[in-house]
């Protein structure tokens, strides 16, 4: 599980919240809430346009300049197969580190920081390939379902012919 291994890398930072808990940044796409572990998040910024990248899948919204480096932006809605987001200034880009790369994902809004117990992470039900591919697990928080995003899976397969 990606989230677990990441947590080990940053063990000292998350130690405060205890061995068995996990802090997530939660964000919304439409009605749905998703989360990523807080330690992977580098920066949250408002959508300010991106330079489109040709010859890539539709969920690659383009690249932005993040203090001198070029960072690709992934449209999470499009990645889930719900069509491209029509971004406004109110949309948000969450910049995260995946492995040694920095990527941004375009979401509708950032809603919350959640502290959840590891025991509350449920497996993704078998069935839809998109769900099992892109989610690491499912968490129930305040009787809402929060999908734990598998960042590696999101970033993969961005090339048109890949």
């Amino acid at each position: 599980m990606e989230a677990l291994s990441l947590r080990e890398d940053n063990g000292d930072k998350t130690a405060v919240v205890g061995q068995n808990t996990l802090q997530l940044i939660a964000f919304s796409i439409g009605e749905q809430t998703y989360g990523v572990e807080i330690t992977t998040v580098r920066e949250i910024r408002a959508w300010n346009g991106a330079t489109p990248l040709p010859n890539t899948r539709d969920f690659v919204r383009g690249v932005i300049n993040l203090r001198g480096t070029i960072v690709p932006i992934f449209d999470l809605r499009a990645r889930f197969g719900d069509g491209q987001t029509s971004p406004t200034k109110n949309h948000v880009v969450v910049v995260m580190s995946v492995g040694d790369k920095w990527v941004g994902i375009l979401v509708d809004a950032v809603s919350d920081i959640l502290t959840v117990s590891r025991e509350d992470i449920h497996n993704v039900p078998e069935g839809n390939a998109i769900d099992t591919e892109l989610l690491n697990g499912i968490i129930t928080h305040d009787s809402r379902m929060v999908g734990l995003i598998d960042l590696h899976a999101v970033v993969n397969g961005a090339k048109l012919d890949g």
């Binding site: 346009g49 990248l53 040709p54 690249v63 300049n65 480096t69 690709p72 790369k101």
Partner: peptide
């Protein structure tokens, strides 16, 4: 931060802060 893209040799940052390919 990404991967090689066909037909694109790289990127650069313009004076206005935008990325040009």
């Amino acid at each position: 931060n990404f991967e090689q893209v066909e037909g694109i040799a790289g990127g650069t940052i313009l004076g206005d802060g935008n990325v040009a390919l």
